[in-house]
Design a protein around this nucleic acid. Structure first.
Lengths: 195, 195
DNA sequence: AAATACGTTAAAAAATAATTTAACAAAATT
DNA sequence: AATTTTGTTAAATTATTTTTTAACGTATTT
């Protein structure tokens, strides 16, 4: 009945696993909310609790998945800049470490997406505005068509303003300026670890 | 060779279609970026250019899809609060109208997600912190396990701060306070239409 | 009251996406 | 130089999601 570990010790390890598991699930579910697939979310969440960098084989063992899956998953995480490849003398294998500062995470994740969103849409909007102006500059066009063009144009000007606003949001997130407006507060006493 | 519409008129209509199509594609692609499926994104984008409310049959015809698809798609758009059901005297059919103010869109879309994210994670974090404290309060636990618990605890305190920050971000987005920090600027001369 | 119109749910089919196994190429070790 | 290790790509498989067709229930009209 007696094991090599004390039962208290064993219980403590279970508590710890349990604690980590609950947060891992929450993180993965959160990422799913923004279109990151559950497996990739789970990989990030698992790495979040690792204090040393992981190899692809470590990930494979931790998640019980194949190595090619880990390879592609970790690349996606690198693409959104929340996992970095680490160089370490001696190790032949690639090593990966997760970004643990969620403010950093937030900046990369949303910053990149918003930037892409603004660029993508501004390009389409400008193209559209040009076409609409061509319609409005022609006299032989029916009133109905012209009105629709005008209405579209008004709407797109608003949309354009939104895209520019997004760009400024990105800027303030990436520069950290936003944290002057919405400061990072510490619920616990000690000073916050910033990079 | 001559049609019932003047060829200029016909060309104008094509330009207009072309203009709208380019923006529709951009909006749908953008929404896809955040995990909204292409069809649902395309539906919203199509509705964005309609100035009168649409019925399910209108949508069906516009997108060339089945009515049940439209029914479920429009419900998802209602869920993220970017499409509203409209009541209109006389019409038996349900009528739907898209939110056209993208600042409003932004607030609903990200506000709701961030709120959910914060709540979900805070709940998991608090659960985890409780477990970890149990480990730390027990004397018969190995130093190694305790250190891991302490490290997790420190990390989770940071995570908690992030979640609270998210909550305040939501608040400032929903109250409109954020637009004092990052004002909505008009690239065109006229004043911006606010609700 | 019977018939039609409308929206939704359920089941089936089709289309996508995720995952694995196998094959490969590059680098390091023996 | 031959062999092993490592990471990635390609093809095949599996799983999931999306979409449709069919069936249903409610309300409206005739």
């Amino acid at each position: 009945m007696e094991d090599h570990k004390g039962e208290k010790q064993q219980n403590a390890e279970e508590l710890l696993e349990d604690a980590e598991r609950s947060v891992i699930n929450a993180i993965a579910e959160t990422m799913d909310l923004y279109g990151v697939t559950p497996s990739i979310g789970r990989l990030y969440a698992t790495m979040y609790f690792k204090h040393d960098p992981l190899t692809l084989d470590d990930m494979k063992d931790d998640l019980g998945m194949s190595k090619p899956s880990m390879s592609t998953a970790v690349r996606k995480l690198q693409d959104i800049n929340i996992v970095k490849k680490i160089w370490k003398k001696g190790s032949r294998k690639d090593l990966f470490l997760a970004e643990k500062n969620f403010f950093q995470y937030f900046s990369h994740f949303f910053g990149d997406k918003w930037e892409r969103e603004a660029k993508l849409n501004l390009s389409a909007i400008n193209y559209a505005i040009e076409k609409l102006q061509q319609v409005l500059n022609d006299d032989e066009i029916s009133e109905e068509t012209k009105q629709r063009a005008e209405q579209d144009l008004r709407q797109l000007e608003d949309y354009k303003n939104y895209c520019h606003w997004l760009e400024r949001l990105v800027q303030s997130v990436e520069s950290g300026e936003i944290f002057e407006f919405l400061p990072i507060e510490d619920t616990k006493s000690e000073g916050h670890k910033e990079k």
